[in-house]
Design a protein around this nucleic acid. Structure first.
Length: 332
DNA sequence: GGGAAGCACCGCCAAA
DNA sequence: CATTTGGCGGTGCTTC
């Protein structure tokens, strides 16, 4: 089954066409993760995608995990919204994928945007689509990507990355995060959150070392909210009631709360709590500072309030998380 | 541990 | 006329 029709919802646009390109030896999860997310999004009735799996020669294509996938040849009418290129073991042999690269070049020219999962970035780079772009890929292959394509700016410290109409993601399951971001971009954060819940994955997980990654992966569209978040990060250890953040955003508290929820999918107070918890967590895990010290310096006031926040967010109190992390490093 | 106080959130309405 | 904005007050949750 290479084509999946959107659940009929006449109220919606005819469905964005997503073409996924595969090749012999591709990673199955690079493909199935995104397709699953798109399918669930469509089944909510609040989004609409039509996905197809194509390859250079059509027919059955073997994934690296031994499962074959039936693909089609790209039909003549090439109205494609999103081109999605997966990765796979064969990235070493991407030189032998000239036809796949030609296909990608051809489709990319028709597409509104281009995305890659994992080492799919190598194929995009080979097709000349990544020159001058900031991209990411599987951490294990990031340096090789940079070496082979000096004109590409590789950032290995991200789960996914959007540079203009080029979206790239880190290894394998990061394709799901990438697809959630696409869905959010297209149909709003409520839909992407629903899909994440349904798939039982994090709606936004933190990537790399960026402390505030959850709030940065997707920048809120309006400058107002961005300013407020910036203000919050800079004054994290001070009280941050809604009114103060609204002031930083230069709008009324009511409107601020409304916009904030719409753009970030979270309410202001919750977001501040998450921000604090994220900063605290890394210091709880990595350092030897007292819990009390950390709690004060990230704005929780005292360790008891931080403990409750940790229970809400991580399901475990700080001490348990520190213990878990130190015992892990002892065994490492 | 129970009850008061404070705050965040949200629905509702009116004004812009 | 519709959409956006801001204020008000009730409700529920957290903290004290």
């Amino acid at each position: 089954v290479t084509e999946r029709l959107a659940g009929a919802n006449p109220a919606l646009e005819p469905g964005r066409l997503v073409w996924a390109v595969v090749f012999p030896g591709f990673e199955l999860l690079d493909l199935s993760g995104p397709l699953c997310a798109l399918n669930i999004a469509t089944s909510t009735g609040r989004a609409s995608y039509v996905s197809r799996v194509v390859s250079a020669h059509g027919g059955s294509v073997a994934s690296c995990s031994g499962v074959d996938v039936l693909t089609s040849l790209p039909p003549p009418h090439r109205r494609v919204d999103t081109l999605l290129v997966v990765g796979g073991l064969a990235h070493i042999a991407f030189e032998g994928e000239d036809e796949t690269i030609a296909l990608i070049k051809d489709l990319a020219a028709q597409a509104n945007r281009v995305a890659s999962v994992c080492t799919g970035a190598f194929l995009l780079a080979s097709a000349g689509l990544l020159d001058g772009r900031e991209v990411t890929t599987h951490w294990r292959h990031a340096t090789e990507l940079q070496r082979r394509f000096p004109n590409v700016r590789v950032n290995a410290d991200r789960i996914f990355l959007k540079d203009g109409n080029i979206w790239t993601s880190a290894g394998i399951t990061a394709g799901i995060d990438l697809t959630l971001a696409l869905i959010e971009h297209d149909f709003g954060i409520e839909v992407s959150k629903t899909v994440a819940r349904e798939m039982v994955v994090y709606h936004r997980r933190s990537g790399g070392q960026s402390q505030f990654s959850t709030m940065l992966e997707l920048e809120p569209p309006s400058d107002r909210i961005k300013d407020a978040l910036k203000f919050a990060r800079e004054h994290l250890n001070e009280p941050l009631p809604v009114e103060r953040m609204a002031e930083a955003a230069r709008i009324s508290a009511r409107q601020f709360a409304r916009l904030f929820l719409k753009e970030t999918g979270d309410t202001p107070a919750r977001a501040v709590e998450r921000l604090r918890a994220e900063v605290a967590l890394s210091r709880v895990q990595e350092g030897t500072e007292s819990i009390e010290m950390i709690a004060r310096s990230v704005g929780f006031g005292d360790k008891e309030r931080m403990r409750r926040a940790f229970l809400r967010i991580y399901g475990q109190p700080p001490r348990a998380l520190r213990r878990a992390s130190t015992s892990r490093s002892l065994h490492a």
